[in-house]
Each structure stands twice: as structure tokens, then as C-alpha cells.
Design a protein around this nucleic acid. Sequence first.
RNA 1: GCCGCUGUGGCGAAAUGGCAGACGCAGGGGACUUAAAAUCCCCAGACCUUAAAAGUCGUGCGGGUUCAAGUCCCGCCAGCGGCACCA
Length: 912
Amino acid sequence: MSRRQYPFHLIEPKWQAKWNTEQTFRAWNPGETIPERHPFGVRHALGGQAPEASQLPPKFYILDMFPYPSGAGLHVGHPEGYTATDILSRFRRAQGYNVLHPMGWDAFGLPAEQYAIKTGQHPRITTNQNIATFKRQINSLGFSYDWSREVDTTDTGYFRWTQWIFLQLYNSWVNPATGKAENISTLVFPAECNTEDLKRKYCDSRRLAFVSEAPVWWCPDLGTVLANEEVVDGKSEVGGFPVVRRPMRQWMLRITSYADRLLADLNTIEWSDSLKKMQQDWIGRSEGAEVDFALPGRPEKLRVFTTRPDTLFGATYMVLAPEHKLVSEITTPAQREQVQAYQAAVGRKSDMERTELAKEKTGVFTGAVAINPVTNQPIPIWIADYVLASYGTGAIMAVPAHDTRDFEFAQRFGLPVVQVVAPPDANTPWQGFTDDGTAVNSSGASLNLNGLRTPDAKRKIIDWLEAQGFGKRTINFKLRDWLFSRQRYWGEPFPIVWKKDIDGTLYHQALPETELPLVPPALEEYKPTASGQPPLARAQEWVHLADGSEREVNTMPQWAGSCWYYLRYLDARNSNRFVSSAAESYWMGTAGKTTKATPGVDLYVGGTEHAVLHLLYARFWHKFLFDLGQVSTAEPFYRLVNQGLILGEDGQKMSKSRGNVVNPDDILVEYGADAFRLYEMFMGPLQDTKPWNTSGVEGVYRFLGRVWRLFVDEASETEYEQSCTTLAPEQQANLLASTIRLHLSIQDVTPDKAQLKSLHACIKKVTEDLEALRFNTAISAMMVFVKDAIEWKQRPASAMGTFLQLLAPFAPHVAEELWEKLHGGLGKAVPSLSYQAWPTFDASHLVEDVIEVPVQVNGKLRDVISVATAATNQEVEAAALASEKVQSFMVGKTVKKVVVVPPKKLVNIVIG
RNA sequence: GCCGCUGUGGCGAAAUGGCAGACGCAGGGGACUUAAAAUCCCCAGACCUUAAAAGUCGUGCGGGUUCAAGUCCCGCCAGCGGCACCA
């Protein structure tokens, strides 16, 4: 290894240890006693007091997506977001905020369980080891987390409250009158619910946590069911194993009751457009109508959902999903064989095959017809797998003229195509025209849509359908209820028992809150049972209760713990409540003196992979808790930023198999944490995807070396190096502090004009860039300052100290060390740089006597002239025209126009 | 197929409609050194010339608006991401 630029290997552990023992980054809740000498107390004159919320400075809550502590440890992608939030946290602290910046572990999950199946080692042990590794690595980067608030989703003190929230969901329903969740006890039973059993069923059909027998995604390789959001292209998101559709008894959460609010409230939060779009698409709201078609000779109606009721006159056939329950009833004997064969063929197809796009439309005629309510004509009913049982009513009216899929189907099977919409542009062919236009061929006995523009036609026909009792306005969502149970061991057990009725039917019942936490039983064997039961079923003594009831043996999905961890941080050690209302309203609300703060989490940074999983689930739980009055905001994460992916040096996604994974530990040994942090931020904009380049680390490392040498006398450093070789690291650190002297150029003098200009330009740029999360350009501004300062014969201590304050959020270790040297001299105690007030920028220092103004002729740069700052536009123009270079371009031409861009930015002379 | 984002030197990138390429990497030259490393200084978009200067072209492609376009508008192309028979 080459000679170190500066002794980061001594500085970094020294400051990390100091921050740890002094609890420098402890965030204070209202009512907590702040120690006398804590730098936060000193800064805000609150030392030794226990201030109320109104006495505390404004809060700022900066949150990272907490990691799953895998066995592989940290890779360089993790610290990207963590570094950004840490810089912001340190910046906000300096600005005087009470900053909450916590970290924890999303530690339930499959890898620890699979390791347990392989080796028999309890997931608790694996998890603890992995957490220890992660924590060591995270700490080695000098992040300013308040570890007193660390959470671990697998800790009983944590998951008892996950189970508690589940019980609240179980005991709640959404009142359609208010659209909000209430306790199940407010349900009013209809008259026909006159037995305990019927009442129970009525409640169960409305609970936000309920049991369903519907078909679910079963992943044989993982031995568990998965949520819609966890299935990607017919494979499991984790591991990429095939999944099959299979009816099973499962726990669901009624997230669909919140679909509307989850969509609408996206407008109240600052997330990227693309992320909002992903959630919007996932929720998939569409407005339209349900229309009933009569079935000749049958009492029931065939109900369809359509977003284009205005095209009803063009509905020439109907299509049912092959699984639709009416299919077997309406199919004529002549068609039965064909229909059943088709149903069987579809059932054998994987989901992948069914949604494959290139394939031709398939389907079979049922032999039955339905009556089009506007034309009164019979139209044939088909079944086809392009209609999905799970969306709308599982049946459609087909308007081949104005729907691409219906058109393809009609072409294939020779079904009639009737135009009912005229495109706005007469040259556009009407066949397959799916946009808005004008209704044509759309009149009947009591309804005429002809000539109406599509939106008006929709309105008119829905009014007509409602008046006639043929249908009604409806909104449909793509969002499905959330499948909430898994057949795993390493997850939260459900606080539910199953009881038997007198007649032997099973029903579920919640455990009382006093029995929480419900801890998973000890097992010898973590595999599912031979009969396919979840692993918890192996613990017979745990499952079977004295009263004959049995415990639920499914567990909650990994998402459960991450749905509310950001709330637990607010009051992480509270054993009476999941969070106290005082802590919740101070950190999440806008109460008290938090004028500059925003409601909820002020900034949440994480990867984009959670766009429709964690971020949707957490919003759902938060809204539910809001309805119950448990939290004070409707949204949890006010502002969210997705950090971009860091690719390997080869420009490919980092992966073990490609061998391009960069381990932060290796970088730290060679260059130190400050250089690592600086490089992660210098690579490019936080949100962008960008490749790693280790020699880029070298660049910022050299920069830190230059900073060091600005402040430190090299002769004293050589002295130190010669005498420390035989000492232990701790003694080396002491020697470092006592031997190394400040650079002789550092003097107690007033900065001159040029120095103030350099410094204030840097303050301005760094401050503005931090506000806007432009870390890369903030760093280049500091590099420019250092270039200037290297030239200075005298380096004013005050200006150099201010620079260290700007550097501190990015490279806190070296900044603290130099700050201490600058202010403390030898052995004198200096308060941590972390709570020094952020420097303010003074524009008057940037004013120059003479300004260089570029001069263009016909838009091309021809000269740069110097003009006095006080010069008027006329004087600038005259000076520009007088320039010799400019003159040479104007020979034989006339000046048509002169544009002078204030304030002395540029002159453009237009000639011709 | 639909939606969103992004296209700038050899590379990562910068630029409220106003000097394109700040800052950094890699590269070249020099100083220091017995030498190397480290450090410090200088050069560095392409082209064409030149003794030097100057000049021409340049932000994916084609148009447009403007005194002035990487930036705004229209039409393409490519890459990345999301959704994908959602009626």
C-alpha cells in the first residue's frame, strides 16, 4: 500500500468511539432530560432540562429504508442512501433542527429460515450474527444514527406491537358512510342476522383482516403462498421460482377498502412522478358502469363492467372468463363438450402462457345469448381466456369496432363489427379506433346518443341505464386484497385461535392483547410438515390449547414488520404502547414549534424496488392507524427520494455470479470512511444509476489529503510517523493528537477580500446544493475552495474553520479532527463540530470591482471584455462595440440590434 | 403495445434560455527523487491549419421558436425502468 494521504485509520475510530460514548447523535423526545453537557443541550440552551415539545427546536425526521441483514453483509449500494441521509442529518443538526435519524433491522425473512432448514441452526442465531456484521459495517462509515432507538422486527418487544396492530385490523371494519375504519363493535346487524353464528359471519365478512378461500399464488419451491405484488412474470420475486394458482384458506387484509384514499392522497406528498405513477397503475382505478344483460329464459342477469358504456350500441357479443360461475349454467348441451374442453385447457395453462401477448385469441361459443339492453337484440355469449375472472365482474360486453382485443377476437371468429364512434379526424379509420370521438349509430327507442362527444355520451347513457334499472355508475380497481399469511417459521405468528362450533364448524377468534407477544415455538425441524402444513404445525403442544382450540399456524409476511417500523423509532423502548402519543405528535405531527418541519417523515430515502410493496402496504397501515386516531397524519412519508442503483465497474448490475461486487470493507481499509462517503456522493446525482469506479475513490481521497495538508504541518507529521511505528493504535492516536501541529500558514488574521469571496461562494453553493440534495456539485465547490486556499500564504483560522463546517456533513471524521486541532490546541476540550451553527452566506463578499462580460457577434463568442461593476447597460454596450475583435467581425456590416443581458452576463451584437 | 425517465469528451459528470464540458477519473508533459511511489505545476472535445494566432464543427437524429437552445416546441431513434389482454 502506498503512503496514506492522512491518518484516517486513527482518526476515524477515535471519533466514532467518541460519538458513541458521548451519545452525540441521540435525538431527544419531548419530556426527556437532556444531560448538562450534551452538545445539543448546549447549542439550544436546554442542557439539564426536560423540555416540552414547544420548547424543543423544530424536528426533522430523516429515514432510511432499514435493511434485511443478509449473510453477505453490506455492499456499496446500501451506504449510498445512508450516506445521503447522514449528510442531510448532520446539515439539519447544524441548522438547529432536532434531528431524528434512526436505523434498524427488517430481520424476519426467508434466507435465515432456509439456512435453518439446511443446518438446524435457529434463525435467531443467524439473524443476530448478521445484524452484528451489518452494525459493525454501518458504524465503520461514521453514520450519525441514534442507536438508542434501534429496532429489530424479530424482537419480541417489537413484534408484539406488529401483532397488536394486526388485532386492531382484525377488530375493525370500514364504515361505508364515513369511508373510515371503526371498531367492529359499531357494526349494525341486519334483521336476518338473528343468530350468533350469522352475526359472526357478518362481522367476519367485514373485518379488515379476514380469512378467504380464494385461489392464491402457491410457490412449491418456497413452500409458501405469495402476494400479488411478490409475483413477477409468473415467478416468485424472491428466487424466481414458478408459482401456481391454487385455492387455499388464507388470511387477507382488506387494502381495497383504502384504494381510493391510497390513490387520492398521492397528491398530498412529494414523491417522484414515476413512483407515484407506479402506485397509481398498481391501484388501477377506472371509472365506468356495470351493465346488466338479460338472459332469455333465465331469471339471473349477466353483469359486465365497462369503461365505455357509450359504445353499448356496438356490443355485438359477450365474453365470460372461462372460470365464470354462469358458464356451466348457460352452456347449451350442443356446446357443452367444447366448452368443458376449453375450460380444462385454460386451467392447465400457467399464468405465463395465458398472458403471453403474441398469441392468437382463443375462445368457444357457449350456445347461449344475452339481450343487449339498448338494441333489444340477442347477442352470442362466448368464453375466452382474454377475459380475466379476477377483474370487474369476470365478464365483458365486446365492442369489436372500438376495442383492440375485441376486434382481434371478432376477426378470428367472424363476429359482426358495428361502428358506434366516429373519430374526430375523418381520415382515421374507425375500425379499432379506441379513443374519444363522436357517437354514431347509437339510437334506440328511448335513447339517442348520436352526435354526442364520448364523455357526454357516457354520462347520458349511464343516467339512462340507472333510470331503467339496467346498470349503474361504478369504479373498479386493479388492486386486490393483500394476501397476508405465509407458510413459514421465521415470521410473526398470528394472535388467532381456531375454535369448533357445536356443529363442528371451525371459526377464528382473536387472542386478548394481554397474551401478546405470541412467540413462535421452539422447533427441531424447520421444514413444512409432510402433509404440507406450515412448520409451526410441528409444535403440537404449542398448537393445541387446553380448551380444545388450535392456534393459527401460518405466519405474517416479511412486510408486516416494515409497515410501521418508522413509528416505533419515535418511542422504541415503550412497553405500554406501540408509540406514545406525545412522541408521535412531536415527530410526525405539525404541533408545537415545528413551523419549518413537514408532517410525517420529512425525508425517506431508499431503493425503487419497494415502489408497490412496502410503500403501498405501509401507507395502508398508516391510514388505518390514522382512522383509529393512533397517528396524527394521513400519510407516513411526506417526501421520498429513490437513490439510483450502483452498478459494478463493468457497468453491469452487481452480482456474485458476475464477480463485480464491491465490498465497502475493502475500500475502507485503503481509503477510509470519509473518502468512501465522499466518493459515493461525488459519483453523480443521488437518483441516477451509475457505475462504481474505484480509481474515482482515489480522486476524492487525494482531495481529503489536500485538505489535511492545508491544516497540518508536514514536518510535525513526519516527526509523528517516525516515533509511532512501534506503538499500539490507541497510543498512536494519542501521539497524533499531541505531536501534530497546525500548518504555519494558519493564523489568527482577518480574511482578505479574495479569501472571503472564495469562502462565501463555497458556503452559498454547498448550502443550496444540500437543500436540493445535489451532493456531487457541493463536493466540487469544496474542491474549488481548496484549490484556492492552497495558494494562500496566510490562511485565516476563522475562514478555514468555516470551511471545515461545510465539509463536516460529508467527511465528519477528518473535519472533527481538524476542527479540534484548530480550536483546541494541545489537549484542550472542544465541543463537537456536529452542533456548531451552520455558516451563513453573505452576498456582499461576492461583489467584484470588475466583471468579465462575454461578447457575442450573431450568437458566436468573439471576445470577453472587462467592465466596472457599476457600469450601466449603455456603458457595457459601448465597451462591447469598441472591442477590436468585435470590430473585426463588423467590417462592412451594419449593427441591427444589440442585446445586453443584465446583470452584466453577456452582450450579443446582431449584424447583417 | 402503453406509460415514465435518460441520451453531453476516452470515462463519471456540470451548466435560473445567455462563454458547453465546472469538478473528478483515466491520459500526456514537466518539477522533486539515484529511482520509484507520493506530492506539486502545466496540457487536454473534435477537425483544419500554423512559427504563433486565428478558424470551422460540436450536447442521439431531423425540423421549429428565439438576438441566443444541452435547456423550450413538434417528429423520430436508442437505452433503462414500470405496466402488460385490467374491458
